[in-house]
Lab assay of single mutants.
Amino acid sequence: LELTLRVGDKTWHFKDVDEEFVRHLEELLKRGAHEREIEEIIREWLR
């Protein structure tokens, strides 16, 4: 999967994204996660 995600003024483009990561992001967005929380999840995933 490829994913382009825009949060606030930042845009990330990922290739070979894990479906579990996408589901986790979807859940965060559904519950109205704040920009900082989403950025933290992305940084963790990139490690």
Score class of each variant (00 low, 15 high):
residue 11 T to Y: 08
residue 32 G to V: 04
residue 42 I to A: 02
residue 43 R to E: 15
residue 27 E to A: 12
residue 44 E to Y: 05
residue 15 K to A: 08
residue 5 L to S: 00
residue 11 T to K: 03
residue 12 W to V: 02
residue 46 L to W: 06
residue 20 E to L: 13
residue 4 T to D: 07
residue 27 E to G: 11
residue 26 E to C: 09
residue 16 D to T: 13
residue 36 R to Y: 12
residue 8 G to H: 02
residue 29 L to Q: 07
residue 1 L to W: 13
residue 46 L to N: 06
residue 32 G to Y: 04
residue 24 H to W: 13
residue 38 I to N: 01
residue 22 V to I: 06
residue 42 I to P: 00
residue 21 F to L: 04
residue 35 E to C: 06
residue 34 H to V: 08
residue 17 V to W: 03
residue 28 L to T: 05
residue 30 K to C: 03
residue 17 V to A: 12
residue 7 V to N: 02
residue 29 L to N: 04
residue 14 F to W: 01
residue 45 W to T: 06
residue 34 H to A: 14
residue 7 V to F: 05
residue 30 K to Q: 13
residue 26 E to V: 12
residue 35 E to N: 08
residue 40 E to A: 13
residue 45 W to C: 06
residue 6 R to T: 15
residue 2 E to F: 06
residue 6 R to G: 03
residue 32 G to A: 06
residue 43 R to A: 11
residue 30 K to Y: 10
residue 43 R to V: 13
residue 8 G to A: 03
residue 44 E to R: 08
residue 6 R to H: 14
residue 38 I to L: 09
residue 26 E to Y: 12
residue 43 R to Y: 14
residue 21 F to R: 03
residue 39 E to Y: 07
residue 44 E to D: 12
residue 3 L to R: 08
residue 5 L to E: 00
residue 19 E to K: 14
residue 14 F to P: 00
residue 14 F to Q: 00
residue 3 L to W: 02
residue 16 D to L: 14
residue 32 G to C: 05
residue 9 D to V: 02
residue 25 L to R: 00
residue 31 R to M: 13
residue 9 D to N: 08
residue 16 D to F: 13
residue 16 D to N: 14
residue 34 H to C: 03
residue 2 E to I: 06
residue 43 R to T: 13
residue 41 I to T: 11
residue 20 E to C: 04
residue 24 H to G: 11
residue 23 R to N: 09
residue 28 L to I: 07
residue 16 D to H: 10
residue 35 E to S: 09
residue 31 R to H: 12
residue 1 L to H: 12
residue 13 H to T: 09
residue 31 R to A: 14
residue 39 E to F: 05
residue 15 K to Y: 12
residue 20 E to H: 12
residue 23 R to A: 08
residue 32 G to P: 04
residue 38 I to S: 01
residue 24 H to Q: 11
residue 15 K to M: 09
residue 47 R to S: 12
residue 43 R to I: 13
residue 36 R to G: 13
residue 9 D to A: 04
residue 19 E to I: 15
residue 18 D to W: 01
residue 5 L to I: 15
residue 46 L to I: 13
residue 10 K to W: 06
residue 37 E to R: 06
residue 18 D to Y: 03
residue 47 R to D: 11
residue 35 E to Y: 10
residue 8 G to V: 01
residue 5 L to Q: 01
residue 42 I to Q: 00
residue 2 E to S: 11
residue 47 R to Y: 08
residue 46 L to P: 05
residue 14 F to H: 00
residue 4 T to Q: 12
residue 28 L to A: 11
residue 45 W to I: 04
residue 8 G to R: 01
residue 14 F to I: 05
residue 2 E to N: 15
residue 41 I to P: 00
residue 17 V to L: 03
residue 42 I to F: 07
residue 20 E to I: 12
residue 15 K to T: 10
residue 26 E to A: 10
residue 25 L to W: 02
residue 8 G to L: 02
residue 42 I to C: 02
residue 45 W to L: 07
residue 31 R to I: 09
residue 42 I to E: 01
residue 38 I to P: 01
residue 20 E to Y: 12
residue 22 V to P: 01
residue 15 K to H: 15
residue 13 H to W: 06
residue 11 T to P: 00
residue 7 V to Q: 01
residue 35 E to K: 05
residue 20 E to P: 15
residue 37 E to Y: 11
residue 6 R to D: 06
residue 32 G to L: 04
residue 42 I to T: 01
residue 33 A to M: 11
residue 42 I to W: 09
residue 37 E to H: 08
residue 33 A to Y: 11
residue 11 T to W: 07
residue 39 E to R: 03
residue 16 D to S: 14
residue 9 D to M: 03
residue 23 R to W: 07
residue 6 R to I: 15
residue 30 K to N: 12
residue 37 E to G: 03
residue 6 R to S: 14
residue 1 L to R: 08
residue 1 L to T: 09
residue 19 E to W: 15
residue 17 V to R: 06
residue 44 E to P: 00
residue 43 R to P: 02
residue 19 E to R: 14
residue 45 W to Q: 06
residue 21 F to Y: 02
residue 26 E to M: 15
residue 27 E to I: 08
residue 6 R to L: 10
residue 15 K to Q: 10
residue 46 L to V: 10
residue 17 V to Y: 04
residue 41 I to A: 12
residue 43 R to N: 15
residue 3 L to H: 08
residue 1 L to N: 15
residue 34 H to D: 15
residue 36 R to I: 12
residue 4 T to R: 15
residue 34 H to W: 06
residue 27 E to K: 12
residue 31 R to L: 13
residue 44 E to G: 08
residue 42 I to Y: 07
residue 33 A to V: 14
residue 19 E to Q: 13
residue 13 H to K: 06
residue 47 R to C: 07
residue 1 L to Q: 10
residue 28 L to N: 04
residue 34 H to I: 07
residue 12 W to C: 03
residue 28 L to H: 09
residue 28 L to C: 04
residue 43 R to W: 14
residue 8 G to P: 00
residue 18 D to H: 09
residue 22 V to T: 03
residue 41 I to D: 04
residue 7 V to I: 14
residue 4 T to I: 15
residue 37 E to P: 02
residue 28 L to V: 08
residue 11 T to G: 01
residue 24 H to E: 10
residue 36 R to V: 12
residue 11 T to D: 07
residue 47 R to H: 13
residue 4 T to W: 08
residue 4 T to G: 02
residue 40 E to G: 09
residue 30 K to P: 01
residue 33 A to I: 12
residue 14 F to D: 00
residue 15 K to L: 08
residue 25 L to K: 00
residue 21 F to N: 02
residue 27 E to S: 12
residue 1 L to A: 08
residue 3 L to T: 04
residue 25 L to D: 00
residue 33 A to H: 09
residue 26 E to G: 11
residue 3 L to S: 03
residue 24 H to D: 08
residue 15 K to P: 05
residue 16 D to C: 09
residue 22 V to G: 02
residue 25 L to Q: 00
residue 35 E to Q: 13
residue 36 R to F: 10
residue 13 H to V: 12
residue 11 T to V: 14
residue 4 T to P: 02
residue 23 R to Y: 08
residue 36 R to C: 04
residue 39 E to S: 07
residue 6 R to N: 11
residue 28 L to M: 11
residue 28 L to G: 04
residue 36 R to P: 06
residue 43 R to D: 14
residue 3 L to D: 01
residue 42 I to D: 00
residue 6 R to F: 03
residue 8 G to Y: 02
residue 12 W to K: 00
residue 18 D to E: 08
residue 15 K to W: 06
residue 11 T to I: 15
residue 44 E to W: 06
residue 7 V to E: 01
residue 35 E to F: 10
residue 39 E to V: 08
residue 7 V to Y: 05
residue 26 E to Q: 14
residue 30 K to W: 09
residue 38 I to C: 05
residue 16 D to M: 14
residue 40 E to M: 11
residue 19 E to S: 14
residue 29 L to S: 05
residue 18 D to T: 11
residue 12 W to N: 00
residue 34 H to G: 13
residue 27 E to D: 12
residue 20 E to M: 11
residue 38 I to Y: 04
residue 31 R to C: 04
residue 26 E to H: 13
residue 19 E to M: 11
residue 45 W to Y: 15
residue 46 L to M: 11
residue 37 E to Q: 11
residue 41 I to K: 12
residue 32 G to F: 05
residue 16 D to Y: 13
residue 17 V to K: 10
residue 8 G to C: 03
residue 4 T to Y: 07
residue 39 E to A: 06
residue 25 L to T: 02
residue 39 E to H: 06
residue 9 D to I: 02
residue 25 L to N: 00
residue 33 A to Q: 06
residue 39 E to W: 06
residue 31 R to S: 12
residue 13 H to G: 02
residue 19 E to C: 10
residue 40 E to V: 09
residue 44 E to Q: 09
